[in-house]
């Protein structure tokens, strides 16, 4: 399973998101290949899931991955709930 965490530049907030997604997956006992990148690179990548904000999700129309929207990147419970729903 491949998960991409996406932000505007692919250097700051997507890395924070990735760290927290990895923490949550570990908690859930789910194995996945997690990467982080910027929104334009992500649009050309294949993945099972893309985790990002509502704003940036609008820039990924028609992507084959399931898009998981997270509002609070620091809320591990929210990330956990959203991932559990999607997986």
């Amino acid at each position: 399973m491949k998960i991409i965490c996406v932000c505007g530049l692919g250097q700051g907030t997507s890395l924070i998101l990735r760290m927290n997604v990895e923490n949550v997956l570990k908690d859930l006992g789910v194995q996945a290949d997690v990467e982080h990148t910027d929104v334009s690179t992500a649009s050309g990548m294949s993945a099972d899931f893309i985790v990002t904000s509502n704003e940036l999700a609008q820039s990924l129309p028609g992507h084959s991955a399931t898009i998981v929207i997270v509002n609070n990147y620091f809320d591990l419970n929210e990330i956990k709930e959203k991932l559990q729903e999607a997986l």
């Binding site: 505007g8 990002t52 940036l56 509002n71 609070n72 990147y73």
Partner: peptide, 11 residues
């Protein structure tokens, strides 16, 4: 300006 307010990553 370009990428918008996504930098507000938590309340």
């Amino acid at each position: 300006r370009e990428k918008g307010p996504y930098i507000v990553i938590a309340p």
